[in-house]
Design a protein around this nucleic acid. Structure first.
Lengths: 343, 343
DNA sequence: GTGAAAGCGCTAACAA
DNA sequence: TTGTTAGCGCTTTCAC
């Protein structure tokens, strides 16, 4: 059984006493084969343990049934759930999913570009705002591609994500409803499109409530825990403390919370904090984090659906699909305290 | 430049005015080609933007230069660092890495088995204690394979991980040195080999200190946050509370800490808690978690090194490589309190 | 040093 | 309904 070399279509043909063409047909278009022969072939397949050599098949066909998902950071807590959505949808349509991890390294990206050039993947899902292929990006011949989570900068690649503006708006609105007027925005970034959209939600929320914008409490950040903590420290060095911190994502919020706790403050009584994403950890924090939920599995599912549609239609589909974010109210927000009490 | 169809070796040959054989040689064995022709070929490659079709190449060669990493759960906080180690080592030797996510689903595993059968990957890294290929596992013709993090049950696959017994031993020893005598073990499991080894470390540590084993405070668990919390609740229902919780991994420890905090206890003054793994989150907990560090990147690196060695030598290498775990002392352990004080 | 040609495993005309 | 055959893009003898 467990031979040194895998069975080929020819082995099956020999045992079933038919031609290799018939074997191929028995597998892919069984209705075009006589029932009796089909049975013989199936038997032979069972005996040999034959599996179609996907590589030869793809080479012949000029296309494969694999989708490549390229991510800069596998450890991103958002990644795994989106992936599940992508995979389920792909499988339902006979496609497999392979993951490429670039670590933001163009060299690594190139490796996957070669993979694509060999038709080893029929389509591409990009989990990043930037084409990870360095300079060759422009000259690259990409298969049908869809961005996820964040729009792709370079060129007309459709994108599926959450309505960042609306999500951020829900967070500020809550803070304002609780009575906050001095709300810091932590994690502003011009390079992360999703973040700048969240910033827009923050600005418009302030405007709508007639709260004046205050640039001094808008802090830059790259979305890491460290960046949240750093921003907090900077804020403390100035004289201009807010009563609430609206963070661009949960990681940043966690950083802010750690810094606040380290300084002995109580959340939410001294300061309120909100996040964005609703990563698993958010509900396990003390206090649990009020945040905006990304429907991750749904994003994955609908991104893959879009890609598969492009694959069959060939339509360029210059779309942007925005799903609805939900506010998840937990315990990190309260009315502002009139004065801070050090514990 | 960005043509509809990628350049083939024939396009290059035509432009360079040589045969395709020469192009192939110029690429793979340049020393066997006259300098002048080599130059012409390189120029033609630049013009066409040619990349070798990896699929055709692998089909011809009967082997590829990709390594498949199969993981049941991409979201595992241990995964991403090990992956980095794997990738770096692979790249240094001209191999690429592709990730297959099985979600513990045999059907999905089968998909990757087909991938392997097509020689689309030269080797396999298994990130799980179980061959993820269901029944076909036995009849499967696997390429050289290495297990990571946890030994692989079914059959002689070499494995690289941490010395679980020693690591667990370090954790109990610390607890005992602090004065604890009643130490619960949370996360016992017969299906996870790594966990049962940690249990052994716990038992031997107790024995060495002359502390009697107490089965009633050895709690089952599957290593999730929920399992930690659940075990804690069960312990509280009984009359037999420990003064310390030695958890089989950090996730479990987090679950225990959440439960303890929810009940108003103070860590480490009321109870001590230890984990295992040192996931990123461990240092951000309040209090920060005392745990046992897995040298993840090193594990990945040495697993890949072993695999590549097998690939070139063909040696079966029936090995088990165990790296040294380090105790990371943080703030979740203290001497036992003589009496508990509800806050 | 270079070219012609076989063939990796498969699918899809085209014939029969 | 089934078989024969060309050819996907590539590497590698074997000639020259």
């Amino acid at each position: 059984m467990s031979n040194s070399t895998p069975a080929t279509i020819e082995d099956v043909a020999r045992i079933a006493e038919v031609s290799i063409a018939t074997v191929s047909r028995a597998i892919h278009t069984p209705e075009k084969v006589a029932t009796s022969t089909r049975l013989k072939v199936n038997q032979a397949i069972a005996i040999t343990g034959y599996t179609t050599n996907a590589m030869a098949r793809s080479l012949r066909l000029g296309r494969s049934n694999m989708i490549l998902v390229v991510a800069p950071d596998i450890g991103d807590p958002n990644f795994s759930n989106i992936l599940v959505g992508l995979e389920n949808e792909a499988r339902a349509h006979g496609y497999g999913v392979l993951i490429g991890h670039t670590q933001n390294d163009a060299q690594r990206g190139l490796e996957y570009l070669k993979f694509l050039n060999s038709n080893q993947a029929a389509g591409l899902i990009l989990f990043t705002g930037i084409l990870p292929f360095g300079h060759q990006a422009m000259t690259a011949r990409l298969p049908p591609s869809v961005g996820v989570f964040e729009p792709v900068f370079n060129g007309g690649i459709p994108y599926v994500g959450v309505d960042d503006v609306e999500g951020a708006r829900k967070a500020v609105d809550l803070l304002i409803a609780e009575g906050h007027r001095k709300i810091a925005f932590v994690g502003d970034s011009r390079t992360r499109l999703a973040y700048s959209r969240r910033r827009i939600g923050y600005d418009t929320g302030l405007d709508a409530a007639g709260v004046p914008r205050d640039r001094r409490i808008v802090m830059e950040g790259d979305g890491t825990i460290e960046s949240g903590r750093l921003a907090l420290e900077q804020l403390f060095m100035r004289d201009n403390l807010p009563t609430a911190f609206m963070c661009v994502n949960d990681q940043t919020a966690i950083g802010v919370m750690i810094g606040l706790k380290a300084r002995g403050y109580d959340i939410p009584n001294d300061f309120s904090v909100t996040g964005f994403d609703d990563v698993p950890q958010a509900s396990f924090m003390t206090p649990s984090l009020t945040t905006v939920r990304q429907p991750r599995t749904a994003i994955g599912k609908s991104a893959m659906a879009l890609l598969l549609e492009m694959l069959s239609d060939g339509t360029p589909a210059e779309t942007e699909i925005l799903l609805r974010p939900d506010l998840v109210v937990r315990n990190s927000v309260a009315a502002p305290s009139t004065q801070w009490t050090r514990r």
